[in-house]
Amino acid sequence: MKFLISFILILLLSLGAQIYLPFWSVAIVAFVVSALIPQTPWKALLCGFAAVFVLWAGLALYLDEANDHLLANRISLLVLKMSSPLLLIAVTGFVGGLVGAMGALSGSFLHRQRTAA
């Protein structure tokens, strides 16, 4: 239950933060949620990764569909050297997931440190 609550909180708060703050604000959101809701470090890492992966991949897919794959197709040619917008979306989600995972893991370790002291 804590995993689902953390997942939803990270997803929704990160979505709100992405409107006004830079991309790394998802790490701060994942950090705060994981510091406030106690979980094991592995569950916090997985929760942070999954929430931000779903958010970033979903937003990238939505924006890609909105402009008929034009920009993602051209960027995938530049970065990946092949025309694969969906692979670029997956890479975008993976990078965002790593940022969220590291924030959530740090928050989980902070919570464990506070309770141990």
Rank of each mutant, 00 (worst) to 15 (best):
I37D: 07
A72F: 10
V32A: 12
A30G: 07
A101N: 07
G103H: 04
A17Y: 05
H111F: 10
M1L: 11
K81H: 13
V29Q: 04
L80C: 04
L45F: 09
P38H: 10
V91M: 11
W24K: 09
V29A: 02
F7P: 03
G96W: 03
L4V: 13
A104E: 10
P85M: 06
I8W: 08
T92E: 11
S84D: 15
I10V: 12
L88A: 02
N73Y: 12
A101D: 07
F31N: 06
A101H: 02
I75M: 11
I8V: 14
G97I: 09
F49I: 02
R112T: 09
V32D: 08
L110H: 05
A35H: 01
I89D: 05
Q18I: 05
G58H: 03
A17G: 05
I10P: 00
A60S: 13
G93N: 08
P38K: 09
V99G: 00
L110I: 10
M1E: 14
F3S: 12
S106P: 01
D64G: 10
N67T: 12
W56V: 11
Q113F: 15
L46Q: 10
L80D: 04
L12Y: 07
A27R: 03
W24N: 05
S84T: 09
H69G: 09
H69L: 13
M102P: 00
L78Y: 12
P38Y: 09
S25N: 09
S76Y: 02
A27S: 10
L55F: 06
G58V: 05
W24F: 15
H69T: 11
S108F: 00
A57M: 15
G48R: 03
V33W: 00
V29M: 06
A30N: 08
S34M: 10
L98C: 14
S34D: 02
A60L: 06
V54N: 06
Y62I: 13
L78Q: 13
A51R: 03
Q113R: 15
A101V: 04
L21I: 05
G96L: 03
L98W: 06
T40Y: 05
D68Y: 11
L80G: 02
S84C: 08
W42G: 11
A57Q: 09
V32T: 09
K81P: 00
L36T: 10
W42I: 13
L59G: 01
M82E: 15
A35P: 01
F94W: 08
F53H: 05
V33Y: 00
I37S: 03
R112N: 14
P41V: 07
L46P: 00
A72E: 10
I28A: 12
W24T: 06
